[in-house]
């Protein structure tokens, strides 16, 4: 699906390094290179999935986009405006347009607030929906996410995990956002509940003309919900492609290994060996030089150990950062 609209969000060369402080004078002794040069964009109405293993920096990217972290380097543009430079009233507006859904529905809802306060607070504060009482609007939102408005006066602990995640989604929707960053929206939920929340997200996207950045470690979830997918490893994006290309023609050895490592839920899989990758992900405090993946890559060459591979485009929309494809592709702008 090629969509020519200008991107809603544009991230260019994003870096986020966290200092490691030690001792009485909190001297900086090193850095965690959590995100180390990430480019991505999201078009209006599009869902971009970011997939990767723990510690690859995918959540940090999400938090930088929301301006919960200030980037060390790089630019994040939302609707053409540099997010880092937004101030005053514009910042308040920005906060309403980009919302977040968190992983843990038990920790991300205030246990002392009733549902109507959790969902309705921001409507009151920002004076959204003039002409409609915030109570009406809250009831409307609860219905949209599949909860009953009768439950408005309850506290978060009275709900199950899946219902709490619905409350979290209603809270995000209350701001009439353009972009929702969903960080592992279903990984804390039971299998039979995951499908309910994924379907809800899909339905709301159509209904409210939303765009999503979905961050997850589960390839099945990411592929189901996304239009395009970026695969991250140790702070960098290794491959971006449409959902179909990524699944049918994975190019990067890491993507291939990830796809093959997922156990398949079907008959005849018994005792199939599929661990292609040995060892652990290196520490982001001391990332390896050259290609970040070369320490575990079954196809690593000598140049991979020294030279960081540039992102190259193989087919339209399918980009990969791997020396293997240096001949066949053209440089990305």
């Amino acid at each position: 699906m090629l969509n020519a609209a200008p991107p809603l969000l544009h991230v260019d060369g994003l870096k986020k390094h966290f200092p490691i402080k030690k001792g009485l004078l909190t001297k900086t002794v090193g850095h965690v290179f959590a995100v180390d040069g990430v480019d991505l964009f999201i078009r209006p109405g599009e869902t971009l999935g970011l997939v990767g293993e723990s510690g690859c920096g995918k959540s940090t990217v999400g938090r930088c986009i929301l301006r919960l972290y200030d980037p060390t380097q790089g630019r994040i543009c939302f609707q053409g405006n540099d997010v880092a430079a937004i101030q005053g009233r514009d910042l308040i507006r920005f906060r309403t347009q980009v919302q977040m859904v968190f992983q843990d529905p038990y920790a991300s809802l205030n246990p002392r607030m009733r549902v109507r306060e959790i969902v309705g607070e921001a409507i009151r504060v920002h004076k959204l929906h003039p002409g409609r009482s915030w109570r009406e609007q809250t009831a409307h939102l609860l219905r949209e996410v599949g909860l009953s408005p009768d439950q408005m006066d309850r506290y978060a602990h009275e709900f199950s995990g899946g219902q709490r995640q619905r409350i979290g989604v209603a809270r995000a929707l209350a701001m009439q956002p353009k972009l929702i960053v969903a960080d592992e929206p279903v990984s804390a939920l039971d299998v039979s509940i995951q499908a309910q929340v994924l379907n809800l997200l899909d339905r709301l996207k159509e209904r409210f003309e939303l765009s999503y950045l979905v961050i997850a470690h589960d390839l099945g979830v990411v592929e189901h919900i996304s239009d395009r997918i970026g695969v991250m490893y140790l702070g960098r994006i290794m491959e971006t492609a449409s959902d179909r290309d990524l699944y049918q023609k994975p190019l990067h050895p890491y993507t291939q290994a990830l796809l093959s490592a997922v156990p398949k839920a079907e008959a005849g899989q018994r005792r199939k060996r599929r661990a292609l990758l040995q060892g652990d992900v290196p520490s982001p405090i001391n990332p390896p030089p050259g290609c970040r993946f070369h320490t575990r890559c079954p196809e690593a060459q000598s140049e991979c150990r020294n030279i960081h591979p540039a992102m190259i485009e193989i087919t339209p929309g399918h980009q990969v950062a791997c020396h293997k494809y240096a001949e066949g592709g053209k440089d990305c702008p």
Binding site: Q163, S192, Q196, N199, D202, G220, E223, D243, Q248
Partner: peptide
């Protein structure tokens, strides 16, 4: 039916996941 499996949406078209309604 409710688990999203890589590749299924290309063999049978994108459709909503089958839900098990309600909770345990």
């Amino acid at each position: 039916r409710s688990i999203p499996r890589p590749g299924r949406k290309f063999s049978s078209g994108k459709q909503a996941l089958a839900e098990i309604p309600g909770i345990v």
